[in-house]
Amino acid sequence: MSIDISNSASVDIDHLAKLSRLQLAESEKFKLQGQLERILNHFRALEDVDVSGIEPTAHACDVVNIWDEDEVAEGLTPDQLETIAPAFRDRQIVVPKVVDDA
């Protein structure tokens, strides 16, 4: 699935909602689709920039090798987890039965 940017401001709203794990009402989807397409069409201004040979920026600083030594520190307790968990049993988070989700 290779799509040219010039055709890409058409949005598959159901696919995006699924990737986002968002349950949306049909009216919400309709509105979002229009807004996203309008926003993306405006953002196509980026096509005008020659970016050949340019490295992408992933961080606002150019630093490497920030790490910790392998030494153990305190963590949280299951009791602390229980205070924030929506459902908790036997020191564990309870979720309804999990089925495979492709």
Binding site: R89, D90, Q92, I93, V94, V95, P96, K97, V98
Partner: peptide
């Protein structure tokens, strides 16, 4: 995850 009859524990 540990799967039980009615739910799962994490």
């Amino acid at each position: 995850l540990t799967h039980g009859d009615n739910d799962s524990l994490v």
